[in-house]
Nucleic acid binder design. Structure first.
Lengths: 192, 192
DNA sequence: ACCGAGCGAGAACGAACGTTCTCCCCTCTC
DNA sequence: GAGAGGGGAGAACGTTCGTTCTCGCTCGGT
């Protein structure tokens, strides 16, 4: 077995388990069993559980960024690209495994106790916000639009996670339409 | 010492500690020390840690509902009452102890493992959404407005928590103004 | 003054967890 | 074929945690 293949499987399995049940609720032995590796190999690939958590966060960040980018790329106009954020959310919420944003969850679980996790969650959110800023700029929108849309996206994620329904994506999208059209149409009017 | 006074102090202390460091990171012994009660009294008042967690959630719910209601009541018009939601958030985010919505956090930490916690978080969010629906109705807004504002409020909370800044309240408020004015002004136009 | 009930302090217990160690088998090399 | 090295299974270790138990003290009633 390739050493890097074991790593990949460990991180992928950890991602699933941590997402489904929470990081602290999944022990190393359960992860070992689910990933089909020995404990020795686990600790050969990762020095500690904390480093697995960080690897999972990196994987989640990559997966999110790539998935979002792929959905956005399909949109034709700058306005549609901004709205594509919410289409991506809608599709994500439909997955059986959806249990809320993994960064919000890990921040809530470990942010107060692990500076690394807190910092990575912050970076992930900042990178998303930067991305929205870029999309908003390409649409020629005033600078206050991007944070508004980011907040809508965050809210849709937690609402969908806790309520267990998918409608928040649609509701957030319709709100985003209003915000975008107002920002693009009525130049000069209102600022944050 | 009044028996109910001990209860109150235990729950208040647990609220602080759980909020600051996470539920799972705070042991019964630390709670006992911080609340200044004996372990015996602790288990005399509550059968288990889980029941303390539920009592904390109930306290948080009451505190949230009362604080929100108090802020909303100060607003003069239905439109301002809707916006008061975000003034309440702004004020909350400024508190040193703010570390995100306690229900989102406890849901992320224990929701997958404790059906009671998950259910209570759901109920809390549903009750907030109902409240927004009521305020929106009093403003004569179409039914799609309330979920939009609820999502904004959720998003502001997680954004403020992770970024560690307070500006999300202001940004969400300005977005809410747009959504409210659009919903109240352009009757018939767009629905969710 | 004495007895019993209640309380605080903290030891004790059992379980779970992260991490390391041991033992055994397989395999590859000479 | 013998020996060594690596890897898997899982026992072991030390810690932490939730919960219970023990012990000694205090205090109120008669």
């Amino acid at each position: 077995m390739n050493i890097s293949e074991a790593r990949t499987r460990i991180v992928a399995t950890a991602d699933e388990l941590y997402n489904a049940r929470g990081i602290q609720a999944v022990g190393m032995d359960e992860l070992r069993a689910a990933a089909g590796v020995s404990l020795k190999k686990l600790y050969q690939e990762f020095p500690s559980k904390g480093s697995i958590v960080m690897a999972v966060l990196e994987r989640r960040h990559r997966s999110w960024a790539e998935g979002l980018e792929a959905t956005v790329r399909q949109a034709a106009t700058p306005r549609e690209r901004l709205l594509a954020i919410f289409d991506y959310l809608a599709q994500w919420f439909c997955e059986d495994s959806f249990r809320g944003c993994g960064f919000i969850n890990s921040f809530a679980e470990l942010g107060a106790v692990s500076p690394e996790v807190a910092e990575y969650a912050r970076e992930h959110k900042a990178s998303f916000q930067d991305y929205v800023v870029r999309l908003a700029n390409e649409a020629g929108a005033p600078s206050y639009l991007a944070p508004q849309l980011s907040i809508l996206a965050e809210g849709a994620q937690t609402t969908a996670a806790i309520a267990g329904t998918t409608e928040a994506a649609r509701q957030a999208r319709s709100a985003a339409e209003v915000l975008i059209d107002t920002a693009l149409g009525g130049r000069s009017s209102r600022a944050a």
